[in-house]
């Protein structure tokens, strides 16, 4: 009997972690125009709407490309042409109050509208450019990085 109770407790308390570990997608591509790619594990994949996003994905657009993403905290990231943007780190774990989002823009343009994460922790969202770091306490930001 005791064994059964312990087993149930393990299942009940352990499962949220299991689900999070099994599914680490951080968002989805909602719309794409022109040529856009994701660099993931040294592979370059052309992007379509519905493509799932993961930590460390690098998003690349050509001169005619742009795309819009929705991240798991309901924040909205859109990327303009001739851009290179790295989704370096994304942690959204409301059960543990563990939040962080770090994006790096190497070149090009982006706009970002914060979501639940910035509401829960105003220090959680950072966008890094080649010449500064932006702490985004809220809520709507646009960044342009010239090519070196």
């Amino acid at each position: 009997m005791n064994v059964v109770i312990i087993f149930l407790l393990i299942i009940l308390t352990g499962m949220p972690g299991v689900i999070n570990a099994a599914d680490t997608r951080i968002g989805i591509v909602k719309n794409v125009r022109g040529s856009a790619y994701i660099e993931r594990s040294y592979e370059t994949i052309p992007v379509k709407a519905g493509e799932r996003l993961f930590e460390k994905d690098i998003i690349i657009t050509q001169k005619d490309g742009s795309l819009g993403l929705i991240l798991r905290d309901n924040s909205l990231l859109s990327i303009g042409p001739s851009s290179r943007v790295v989704l370096s780190e994304f942690r959204f774990e409301p059960a543990e109050n563990n939040h962080s989002f770090l994006t790096r823009i190497k070149k090009g343009t982006l706009t970002y509208l914060t979501g639940l994460m910035a509401k829960m922790n105003p220090n959680a969202v950072k966008i890094e450019t080649p010449s500064a770091v932006c702490g985004v306490r809220g809520t709507h930001i646009a960044i342009k990085v010239d090519e070196d």
Binding site: T129, S131, V136, R137, G138, H140, I141, D146, E147
Partner: peptide, 17 residues
């Protein structure tokens, strides 16, 4: 590092961060 331009936009609902 390359030149960066950063702009704070008003939210769709008018609030400012």
């Amino acid at each position: 590092g390359a030149k960066t331009q950063i702009v704070l936009l008003p939210d769709p609902d008018g609030a400012v961060g």
